[in-house]
Design a protein around this nucleic acid. Structure first.
Length: 487
RNA sequence: CGGGGCGUAGCACAGCCUGGUAGUGCGCUCGGUUUGGGACCGAGAGGUCGGAGGUUCGAAUCCUCUCGCCCCGACCA
């Protein structure tokens, strides 16, 4: 059920799917995205689930300004060097009418200090933390915000890299390096769990190389997924910021021993890119495929009739079914529009990724049955009306599992363990997926990969039992790298 | 910023090479028949052919300029 239609032009294909399912579209504003209600509903559900996971682990939400004084950004050297290249800047606060009636910028309303529209909020948040943190008793500080950010990318791509995007960004402060490390790993685990259990998207978990890490971080953890065209997508990152921002913003606390110490920090984020990841992991030629746990409507009920009498009857049964499903916590809708044929409704629910479709016509009413069709496999079955709700629960669970297993098998069968650099190149060049190999983390090795548009996606976690030779330097290495092309 | 491609009806496109009444499919409106995998028939509405200039009796078509979009690279969640 994978993609066949446009595999040679995957990005165009998935744009078609998105358009068909009316999830999003390019905005009149260059590089930006309009998220339609259908798409936003999925994002809202993802937000809710992730927010719950964060709150369960002691995080709280807050909100910080959209505008950042330009000078703040320059306080952390690596940070500014990276983000300066892609900032939108507010320079004036007023327009006026020109002589020809058009609106022009009022040069008298020039800001003394320009404001940067946040590309990320470390700097504005740490300027607050300076005042909030005085004592070790104020730590840890575990704050998250849901917000929009702007990065003026040279090239944008719907969902995956828009000029403005929505995200959650966590910013925490801790007493010790180890405590910050624990936090960064806790979040990494939450991201992995969210991706795999809710999105049914398997991810490789690891650490970024020096050249790929977040600007201003000590080190960056990442979850990396494989899309159906075998390219990698960075799906979430968790950064250990060391004391870089604490020092840049002079955030110190008085410890138990009476000493003034800089705090240790983390930051972490996932974005509306996850919507793209979801689409590109599961969808097929018929349209979206949504994992049941993220589908806002899990079941579509299609009543089928010819006559008005039959119509009243099948709709009554459909409503009963919807109520029975609702009692089991399954969300559904009855598609009783009489200006669309059943075939049209079948196709539409598939386009929109509804995990289960129930068909209910005069035949079923007579026999006391319901036909059910699952989105992931297309398999149709018939169950008695009374056992349907129970079967639906089981089927939804099975679809959730099946989507994950299917995606994992795809990824695993397209990840190749290689022993030499040439083999790794071969894997990437033939678009066969990911190469996995020992890597000692040299920047020189990474630069070689750039020549073929590949990169080290992450260095996998290391249980210490296996060692080997780095495929670039030949030196001993303890970690394996995932190498591939990425979005 | 470099290299390609494309701008024609709400959407997808043909027509351009070789200048001569503005086309097709989907969608939309109306009428009828239909409805178990995107129904069918008939009638109808809808376009300054991205913009400006030029060549010509005549330009969607040829020439020049310009604006915009998409793709590929550098950049990136």
């Amino acid at each position: 059920m994978a993609i066949t239609k446009r595999s040679e032009d995957y990005s165009q294909w998935y744009l078609d799917i998105i358009k068909g399912a009316k999830l999003a579209e390019h905005s009149p504003v260059k590089g930006c995205m309009v998220i339609r209600p259908n798409g936003f509903a999925i994002w809202e559900k993802m937000q809710r689930l992730l927010d719950d996971m964060l709150k369960e682990t002691g995080h709280v939400n807050a909100y910080f300004p959209l505008f950042i004084p330009k000078s703040f950004l320059s306080k952390e050297a690596e940070h500014v060097e990276h983000f300066a290249k892609e900032c939108a800047i507010v320079t004036h606060y007023r327009l006026k009418a020109a002589e020809d009636g058009s609106l022009v910028v009022d040069e008298n309303a020039k800001l003394e200090e320009e404001l940067v529209i946040r590309p990320t909020s470390e700097t504005i948040i740490w300027s607050s933390y300076k005042n909030w943190i005085q004592s070790y008793r104020d730590l840890p500080l575990l704050i998250n915000q849901w917000a929009n950010v702007v990065r003026w990318e040279m090239r944008t791509r719907l969902f995956l890299r828009t000029a403005e995007f929505l995200w959650q960004e966590g910013h925490t402060a801790h007493r010790t390096y180890d405590e910050a490390e624990e936090e960064a790993l806790l979040i990494l685990g939450i991201y992995k769990k969210f991706a795999e259990e809710f999105m049914a998207m398997p991810v490789y978990v690891g650490v970024k190389t020096e050249s790929e890490k977040f600007a201003g971080a000590d080190h960056t953890y990442t979850i990396e997924a494989m899309m159906q065209d075998k390219k990698a997508l960075q799906a979430g990152t968790s950064h250990h910021l060391g004391q870089n921002f604490a020092k840049a913003f002079d955030v110190k606390y008085r410890d138990e021993d009476g000493e003034q110490k800089y705090v240790w920090a983390t930051s972490w984020a996932v974005t509306t890119r996850l919507l793209g990841a979801l689409i590109m992991t599961h969808s097929d030629d018929k349209g979206l495929v949504l994992p049941p746990k993220l589908a806002t409507k899990q079941v579509s009920v299609v009543p089928i009739w010819r006559t008005d009498d039959a119509r009243a009857n099948v709709i009554e049964y459909s409503m009963k079914l919807k109520a029975a499903l609702s009692e089991r916590g399954i969300t559904s809708y009855v598609d009783d529009r009489d200006d669309r044929s059943p075939g049209w409704k079948f196709n539409e629910s598939e386009l929109n990724g509804i995990p289960l479709r129930l068909e209910l016509g005069p035949k079923e009413v007579t026999s006391g049955t319901v036909v059910v069709c699952r989105r992931d496999t297309g398999v149709k079955e018939s169950f008695s009306f009374n056992e349907m709700p129970e079967k639906a629960t089981a089927l939804l669970a099975d679809i959730q599992t099946n989507l994950f297993n299917r995606a994992r098998e795809f990824r695993d069968s397209n990840t190749f363990d290689v022993q030499t650099y040439d083999e790794a190149i071969e894997v990437v060049k033939t678009n066969s997926g990911f190469a996995r190999a020992f890597w000692n983390g040299s920047t020189e090795g990474e630069n070689k990969l750039k020549n073929i548009q590949a990169s080290v996606r992450c260095l996998l976690s290391n249980d210490g039992t296996e060692t080997g030779k780095c495929i670039v330097s030949g030196e001993n290495a303890t970690r394996k790298a995932i190498i591939g092309k990425s979005y």
